[in-house]
Design a protein around this nucleic acid. Sequence first.
RNA 1: GUGGCCGUAGCUCAACUGGUUAGAGCGUCUGGCUGUGGCCCAGAAGGCUGCGGGUUCAAGUCCCGUCGGUCACCCCA
Length: 427
Amino acid sequence: MAFQSVKGFKDILPPESEAMTSLELAARDVLRAFGYREIRIPTLETRELFVKSVGETTDIVEKEMFQLEDAGGRHLVLRPEGTAGVVRAYLEHSLSQQGGRTKLFYIGSMFRAERPQKGRFREFEQIGLECFGNGHAAGDVEAILALSYVLDRAGLKGAYSIKLNNLGDEKPECRPAYRASLLAFFETVKDELCEHCRSRMARNPLRVLDCKGDGPKLKANPALPTLVPCGDCRTHFDTVKALLENESVAYELDGSLVRGLDYYTRTVFEFRSTDVGAQDAIAGGGRYDGLVKAMGGPETPAVGWAIGVERTRLAIAAKAHAEAPRGVDVYVAAQSDAAGLVGLAMGLLQSLRRQGRSAEGALFGHSLKAQLREADRLGARLAVIFGQEEFAGRTCLLKDMRVKDSQEVVAIADVLEKLNRTLGAMS
RNA sequence: GUGGCCGUAGCUCAACUGGUUAGAGCGUCUGGCUGUGGCCCAGAAGGCUGCGGGUUCAAGUCCCGUCGGUCACCCCA
């Protein structure tokens, strides 16, 4: 094969492409009801943006970004996630000055250079949202509700579970205290850590747990300290749980749920499909109250999430069979290439299409038999045949494809009206 | 980044322990039916067996490398 797509990148053909579109449409509809408006952000951003937001010591930034350098020597990357870009846009255009909360959603491709597997590609699509300016637990809950409504609308009701965790915040007695005790713990086992972990532990001890080699061993160590959230964070989280219960949303607590991005605070959540393979996290997100300020903006609480479109499609496909695509309404055939017949056929096709009917035909240069075979393959409901003999008498033939040998002579002048009437009766 | 499995026609797969000209089904096109689909029958087109090297008289088959796919670990959506 001369050319093939790049590793981990793939073509999405019909009908999968159409199924993805309908998922996007469902999401748009639900998010509109929740008051979110669409933002479109660039695919390319500066590397620095993600170093600052996602975190310099995270897996995503350390080894999963596609990087390039432009002619001016700028370090650019294909966006590995959406939140950083939305926050940048929020600050760049001073959206906070519009008053109230800012609720935005986006749909687009993200890029991560991971080893591909089921439900994991190097280019993948996310539907995500960000809500700025709501620090109350109700904000977390609204975001979770929006997410579950989108998935329910997509046909996944009852096919996913919700995991919750509380990561605490940056008050000294909260996550910083945990970080310090983690660092102290790592000092005690320093000799067993790999070189990379030793250099990383001082900068970001939480990320040492992500290490491919040392992480699993460390997590198995009973002496590993656990986070004890401060009082405010505990109260916040308790309210989140209470409000979810009030809405009858089932969830499970999972202390091991730590998002791989540094900006999360307090509530983090993950939606897992019950039948999709190893990559079962179909959506995830959480609160990030410190990020906007850390990126140079005003103190702004925020919460957001992202849905993995391909994974969600896998979950949907596992649950329901794809419905057969509807065939074309009308197939127009011409007996020969004679100019008059070709003109009639094309004219009728365009008239039908202008009305919104799906119409196909004009396989000129092929036998009538071949044209009707194509009509059959396309699932045409009606076929019109322009023949030489009928042409002389200003008529053509109308066939109901569902009926064998059906054939009706119709005046050319009346054929469009006749087609519309018949199609109307059929549906 | 690590590991397992797999790369033969558009698709799904054959080809005994290496051994003539790499086959079949489905699909496509054409014809049987000079102007009528689905079913049937016949014919045709379609392959540098992923790529590169090696072993051998001989490689689709064995070995090495590489690229790609796939699944898992890890991580994430």
